[in-house]
Design a binder for these strands. Structure first.
Lengths: 210, 210
DNA sequence: TGTACAATCACATGAATATGTAATACTGAA
DNA sequence: TTCAGTATTACATATTCATGTGATTGTACA
């Protein structure tokens, strides 16, 4: 018997899920709550195997609830439940130790499978969510943006720009006149296809030039 | 009709999978090969929707095959198929643009679902694989920057700064006056302990505020 | 029912930045 | 040896930015 806690602000959905899950062989919803106000105490009191956690809830939301639980308990399996496969939330949830991330439109039969999977150590994810995760994963590891062939000198200037130096400071640092700095920066802008310092800095970070 | 190419060195398994898949409504195995020797030409010739790719094959293996395909084609969906949920291989495969990673012990019905999911842009993964992925993900990104408690509005402004907007453009974008933008930015600088746009942008990247 | 703070707008000023034009010198490759 | 590219400096001008001071409104909290 898999013991489940349910966090979902919509009363209808909460009721519906409770009925569905508890009505299935081997599953039991111990309790449901409308937000994570007292999530730590509740988890302690009920000691569930799996927690279904809606993300968008008024008051203390699912991501915050997740964090609070993980501060005191890293055994219980937590499945995030949400309407959108939103990049940012997925990332947050995973970083904070969620065991899975599924969309609310998941058909009931699948939901039960997912819960069972989570309980046995799996990491159930809706396919679209998994796609996002893979994208994030491969993007963060696919090194190297373009080269832009900056000259050595230009790279130095860009480096200093990124560190927050003004033209004047760069001139001092590199023992050249401020006009030379301007000249280099003009070149850099051309090569990076930008036209402001902050854009250049942003591009330097994105493309890992620095 | 989903068109499939199959790479698998074991003749029995290759035959079995072909029978299974082609025998199912809406699926067709165009051909099967015992390794990735000529994978690029084969993919070009058959133009499949989905490729089932065993990882462990003598000769040119699945990971190498994956790389070769991705050099010339990033449209076809590639499902990695393997016996073990081996950390290192998973990582490799994902980094090289695999669309999914499933174990050979996957039941036939599930396999067909997975293929269909992949074809429509999903990223099917066996639960145990997903678990590994999540672990890698959260471990490599555990540390998070400070908060600086920026207000919602300030975060928006910073976001736009990072994207290279000028004050004027931000004012337009946010339907506020340029003086309000100044005001917000002054606040942001205080909170981030910087005193220029580019420093703020750099800090936003470093501390992953954006 | 104040107080604190976020969000909004205004005016002013000096500093920094973006852009254009131009010139000189050095280097390595065609 | 010429050509292309890099590095350097100079001058000029318009725009943008940083900063200060001050005010109004609304909301949340004690």
């Amino acid at each position: 018997m898999i013991k489940i806690l349910l966090y979902e602000d919509n009363p209808q959905l909460r009721e519906g899920l409770t009925m569905l899950i508890s009505g299935s062989e081997g599953f039991e919803v111990l309790a449901g709550f409308k937000n994570c106000e007292n999530v730590v105490q509740e988890v302690e009191a009920y000691n569930p195997d799996v927690i279904l956690m809606d993300i968008d809830m008024p008051g203390v939301n699912g991501l915050e609830g997740l964090k609070r639980i993980r501060q005191v308990n890293d055994q219980v399996k937590i499945l995030m439940l949400t309407v959108f496969d939103d990049n940012k939330n997925i990332f947050q949830a995973i970083s904070n130790g969620a065991n899975g991330y599924i969309l609310k439109k998941t058909p009931p039969a699948r939901l039960l499978e997912y819960i069972a999977e989570a309980q046995t150590g799996g990491a159930p994810m809706t396919a679209s969510v998994a796609t996002q995760v893979l994208k994030m994963f491969s993007s963060m590891n696919s090194e190297k943006g373009e080269d832009y062939n900056l000259s050595e000198r230009e790279k130095q200037v860009l480096q200093l720009l990124v560190e927050g130096y003004s033209y004047k400071m760069i001139a001092n640092e590199m023992f050249i006149s401020i006009d030379t700095v301007r000249s280099h920066i003009k070149k850099i802008y051309e090569k990076l296809h930008v036209n402001s310092k902050s854009e250049a800095v942003a591009k330097a970070f994105k493309d890992k030039i620095v």
